[in-house]
């Protein structure tokens, strides 16, 4: 464990008026650029922390009939963007692997929406995350992080991932602030349109 020299020296304090924390999650496989994207747009040096959860095992040990307890630990990075006097948007970079989803309800309930960051060469890595987001009813967009010249069109990506036509699919370069910002703007615009549509729908 490292120690900090002074607890009062918080890297970049929030405005005194800050009162409303918002969550957006960037989900993706290892090495796809989640942390890079958080870093590109965050107003603070990205931080990391973890959550643990102990749960009774699903299986029972045949030999001893002793029920296992397993501890699930998930580490994640995050950054922050102050949106106005009150609202602060927290961006979480989250691994899409299976154990992570055990903690979704505890950590990410209330999340406005998600960015699924994909690497075209490893599209299969994102199937599970897409399935889980749909299961949790979390609106999402898909952003393809281009480290190299893409081999496929975005339409091909949409087809390969079997995405509904309304879900935005865009290209990005997670290393640049403008591109990462564009990803968040695209998600926010999508969320706004969903909310506006359902607001209209509910009055009919």
């Amino acid at each position: 464990m490292h120690s900090r020299t002074s607890d009062s020296a918080v890297d970049a304090p929030l405005r005194e008026s800050a009162s409303d924390g918002l969550k957006i999650v960037i989900v993706g496989g290892f090495g796809v650029g989640k942390t890079t994207m958080v870093q590109s747009v965050s107003e603070i040096r990205p931080l990391s922390t973890e959550e643990t959860m102990t749960q009774a095992g699903i299986g029972i040990d045949d030999a001893s009939f002793v029920q296992h307890k397993t501890t699930t630990t998930v580490a994640f990075d995050f950054g922050r963007i102050s949106l106005d006097e009150q609202m602060v948007l927290y961006l979480f970079g989250a691994p899409g692997q299976e154990r992570f989803w055990f903690l979704w309800d505890r950590l990410f309930s209330g999340t406005l929406g998600a960015v699924v960051l994909v690497d075209t060469n490893r599209l299969a890595d994102s199937w599970y995350a897409l399935d889980r987001l749909e299961h949790h009813g979390t609106p999402f967009i898909v952003a393809r992080n281009n480290f190299t010249e893409p081999q496929h069109t975005l339409e091909e990506v949409r087809e390969a991932l079997d995405l509904p036509p309304e879900v935005p699919v865009i290209d990005c370069d997670a290393r640049t602030r403008d591109s990462s910002k564009n990803v968040l703007v695209t998600l926010a615009r999508y969320l706004y349109s969903l909310s506006a549509t359902s607001a209209v729908g509910s009055t009919v």
Partner: peptide, 16 residues
Amino acid sequence: GRLPEPETLKKVLVAL
């Protein structure tokens, strides 16, 4: 399962 009001999300969009 419900998003915040459109006005709130509009603020988020504009701020971003």
